[in-house]
Design a protein around this nucleic acid. Structure first.
Length: 288
DNA sequence: AGGCATGTTACAGG
DNA sequence: ACCTGTAACATGCC
């Protein structure tokens, strides 16, 4: 899926588009997503107003004025499509170039006042949409075990030190672990480790203090940069303004197996290995 | 044709 | 009860 930056961009788009609007109708062409949609509960959201939109990790939270929250997770291929009154369409994320019509992947349709339509579209159906009582959201199974947000002050040097003590976990696995830090995925983990000149296979407790500080600042830097770029880890990404994200140019190590290391003055070649069954890219020359 | 894919989680075993 | 590794989920691209 979309990782933290993409979800943040979607959240911002939602905020701009549906804040203060009233749900006029809900259609459910397919309720079999990761979790079966509770149709009657979903329909009870009709006539409610969007009071705020938040993000926690990779989860989007649309709070309604009826004390319920619509939780959306985009899985790997979920996207949100907006249609305005003039029927202009904007996709917020886009993994596959869908050649023919992609209507068959439209699973849930919200119609708001002002003729605004919001469609949840998901090729692989790994994502989900759930209705949860707003005051129970942070106790829900999805959110209650999550670590700190990587862009928060809680994610700092002493937190890192505290949590790697006596652990034999590999650096890559540590950053992928949502209990340690919430919202990073395979792409930005690869990028942040590359930027820090660390080897993804290093044992986390053996990283020097200096490198830990560098790593933390690089994680924050790449996420912020990606958010500003408009959420880049998506092929053909379009945000609400219709501006294209740029999948190919943005990354310095992800997906670059057998290509030259992008670090200036480094003659290394990017290798691809698997760590915990996930593709891991690194330059064996400059990432020690 | 077979391998691969940005995520999460249920399960088994330790 | 915790941690860890594996497989599964569904679909389409290369």
């Amino acid at each position: 899926m979309p990782e933290l930056p993409e979800v943040e961009v979607v959240k911002k788009s939602l905020k701009k588009t549906i804040y203060d609007l009233i749900i006029k109708n809900i259609e459910i062409p397919n309720k079999y997503l990761r979790y079966k949609i509770n149709e009657s509960l979903m329909k009870k959201m009709i006539k409610s107003k969007v009071s705020s939109v938040e993000r926690r990790s990779k989860y989007i939270l649309i709070n309604l004025n009826n004390n319920y929250t619509i939780m959306i997770h985009l899985g790997m291929t979920g996207k949100i499509i907006f249609k305005d009154a003039k029927n202009n369409e904007y996709a917020t994320s886009f993994y596959y170039k869908v050649k023919n019509n992609n209507l068959k992947h439209n699973h849930l349709i919200f119609k708001f006042n002002d003729n605004i339509t919001l469609i949840y579209n998901d090729v692989r159906k790994f994502g989900f949409i759930k209705i949860i009582k707003t005051d129970e959201i942070h106790l829900s199974s999805h959110l209650r075990n999550l670590g700190p947000e990587p862009l928060s002050k809680k994610f700092n040097f002493s937190y890192f030190k505290q949590n790697v003590k006596k652990r034999k976990i590999l650096l890559k696995d540590l950053l992928m672990n949502q209990k340690f830090v919430a919202g990073l995925g395979n792409i930005y983990v690869n990028e942040a480790i590359f930027m820090s000149k660390l080897n993804p296979m290093i044992i986390s407790s053996e990283i020097s203090n200096k490198k830990i500080k560098l790593l933390i600042s690089k994680i924050k830097e790449i996420l912020k940069k990606a958010i500003i770029e408009g959420g880049s880890s998506i092929k053909n990404f379009d945000n609400i303004e219709g501006k294209k994200g740029n999948f190919q140019q943005f990354f310095n190590v992800y997906g670059r197996q057998n290509k030259n290391c992008t670090r200036s003055n480094c003659k290394g070649i990017v290798r691809r290995i698997r760590i915990s069954n996930r593709s891991t890219f690194f330059c064996y020359i400059c990432q020690k």
